[in-house]
Design a protein around this nucleic acid. Structure first.
Lengths: 405, 405
DNA sequence: TGATTTAATTTGATACGCGAAAAAAATAGT
DNA sequence: ACTATTTTTTTCGCGTATCAAATTAAATCA
């Protein structure tokens, strides 16, 4: 049980000014020193000191004043600062059941390369995975005209129960063994800092750094892929729970003694909205021929088929109930529904969102903002890259502070 | 003297050493400087500096060395420090539908007085409540041979939706109006710092300061009184959500389109486990004579009455489901089930707890600790006092730091 | 050209916390 | 009894971070 973790009081853990200023710059994209001071509540003097250090280290750079700032024309023109993309090359890699998708980004988050590597099979040993990751990274770097040694950090996204603080895999559908010290194995094989996490958390990180949740310190991301996942950001940090296996939205129960879930329990949300659950329904409900294609089923529902429609309808209602529960518990300012597959569109319908809103405790205050954010194919890999970016920034700046001493 | 009150970046948000040390002392009860240093990771030199300041301010005091410390006999004997109870007098007050219960505690948390004031009626206007609070506090102080002006802070516990950051009441069953700036009104009428919160949060605070959750930075408290409440502590702080109305455990939905709740929605947990819900069931299910006494119903269930038993049984299963959902979302290290009324014992039964454990996502890690903690009558008021204690400590220490400058 | 405005930097001061050394207060050994 | 040893606490000097105020820089306005 987590006894109150006393933070060494020095500059160790805490956002030592440098971090705060750097984050402000990245968040803003381009921002003048004076505005950094305003936003971070750090004095202009200190901002100057810190930024000159970051400039010297090559982490940020000055930009020529952007054309026309409305109003204010007199006075010394402000000089904007931005993150220097060339400072670091970072990779994000996401393992699905079919392939390993790699994305290369610079330190600004700009994509500089993509790469896809087929998997021999959906499940493999940890050793095989390490080899695969190495190949995929090498391939991605080569394709972008860079070398593996150019990488400053790699983010790895895996489905399953991941303890990101220890780079430890409790369990993943991609691996044929439980409880793997994957982080250690990777670091040994590839001399680059690794950062790994469960995929819902990756998306949350991406939303926080580049997406809809910029500037926000508290929000929730719901992802739908094969299963249903959730990433919780509280106070700017991803919430992980005691054992690193919280946020199991897909396995919250929405029906007492309900439908059987592949986790072995009954009534899990996933057992009502997961793809396998929908197909199971379709087959049980006496469809003429066995159904095994979700998009076909979805098409039939759209075309008006009553049976198909009722299947999606119930799934939507269950999803609304689960989401409302999360909102009633967290009272978040923002909920991002993130997904890739159009087949899950029914979960994001007006109808479902309205039902959610009706099931939230009513107060005289604005309802939480629920936004649907559909990413492209590379969503997950980009999330992994975002994770690594944050890690690399932290490492670099910590090193900087240490060197100064 | 200082003109613009920009918050010095040092003491702003973070526990400025002084807070950290003081908290360590309160947490430990009695503790020597060297151990404070060990626990807080602050150097002995700094501990000396800070403690001497706290001593001078009268917030803590030295205690004669306790008899025999096992082992270690040589060396300079350690001098223990403790919070000086006489430093502040603090009140906690809890409003129920029948009365206002007041508890007076010293700065150590030791009870120095109790007081109970009858309410004219269960619902009143904000103005009436202010008068009532004033009367109750005056009465409590008088009974303990103190004066109202001796109070350094008052914690107020109210059922309903309270925004503790603004001392604002969205809604409370005790008030006949919504959206009341109760904090302002109280402060105007009674010149003492007020701290108010929803009652589940009060209990959480009490558990953290004095109870089962000492030293813990992450845990969850579930309370059962009239309704079902929840307090969430993350990172040592009570989690409140965006609009200050999170943690509405009682209104999470456990059944799609289920039983009607007094909040107007359907399927809320409270609509299955609340006292009114149980009685409603009993009456609907064709009991011979209308039932209006919950303890009688409970007694009948214990005696073997099948109908009564089935009512409590279902409530227990619904409760287990809701609790499992919370655990699946938070993955907490500790859950405290807190209650006063024996009538709710059925919710804490082995049976229910087992059901909860069966509904949690399974990992190779110890299950969260679920403990039942029954408090005495004054539980709620004590929670309110705990809240105020924390607030007063913070205020005092902040003032101290400011004066030092 | 000089006045004005706004941004950025320099300067000097201060608080915080640490490490090392010293002091204090006890016991153990001879 | 007196010295050595052990352990806690305090003192001292230093480095770092940060800030307020003053200064410099770079533009426009009149």
């Amino acid at each position: 049980m987590a006894a109150t973790q006393r933070i060494p009081h020095g500059l160790d853990q805490r956002e030592s000014g440098r971090q705060q200023v750097f984050d402000a710059i990245r968040q803003a994209g381009r921002i003048a020193r004076i505005d950094i001071a305003r936003e971070t509540q750090v004095s202009p003097a200190t901002v100057t000191a810190i930024t000159s250090e970051l400039l010297a280290a090559g982490l940020i750079e000055e930009v020529v004043p952007e054309g026309d700032r409305p109003g204010a024309k007199r006075g010394r023109p402000r000089v904007s600062l931005k993150v220097r993309g060339a400072a670091h090359l970072i990779a994000g890699i996401k393992i699905t059941d079919r392939s390993a998708t790699v994305i290369l980004v610079d330190f600004e988050g700009k994509t500089v390369g993509e790469y896809d590597q087929e998997l021999p099979g959906p499940v493999m040993s940890a050793e095989e995975l390490v080899v695969l990751v190495r190949e995929a990274l090498t391939g991605a770097c080569a394709a972008a005209g860079r070398r593996l040694s150019d990488l400053s950090g790699v983010g790895l996204g895996l489905a399953g129960l991941i303890d990101a603080t220890r780079n430890f895999v409790h369990w993943s559908p991609a691996l044929d063994q439980r409880n793997v010290e994957l982080g250690q194995m990777l670091s040994q094989a590839i001399p680059v800092p690794f950062f790994m996490d469960n995929d819902a958390n990756l998306v949350a990180k991406a939303e926080q750094l580049f997406g809809q949740a910029r500037n926000l310190s508290d929000f929730i991301v719901i992802t739908i892929e094969q299963g249903v996942g959730m990433g919780i950001v509280i106070d700017g940090k991803i919430y992980r729970g005691e054992r690193g296996c919280g946020a199991e939205f897909g396995h919250t129960k929405v029906q007492l003694d309900g439908a059987l879930c592949r986790c072995g329990q009954r009534g899990c949300l996933e057992a009502y909205v997961g793809d396998y659950a929908l197909l199971r329904e379709a087959n049980i409900r006496g469809s003429a021929q066995p159904e095994d294609d979700l998009s076909a089923l979805y098409a039939r529902a759209k075309a008006g088929d009553a049976m198909a429609r009722s299947i999606f309808d119930r799934a939507g209602r269950m999803f609304a109930m689960g989401l409302a529960n999360v909102i009633n518990i967290f009272d978040p300012g923002l909920v991002i529904l993130s997904g890739e597959q159009m087949t899950f569109d029914f979960l994001y319908s007006e109808d479902v969102l309205n039902r959610v809103k009706e099931s939230i405790v009513q107060v005289d205050a604005p309802l939480p903002d629920i936004r649907v954010h559909k990413w492209g194919d590379l969503m997950w890999a980009k999330g992994a890259a975002a994770c690594a970016m944050e890690g690399v920034s932290e490492l670099t700046i910590r090193k900087l502070a240490a060197n100064a001493a």
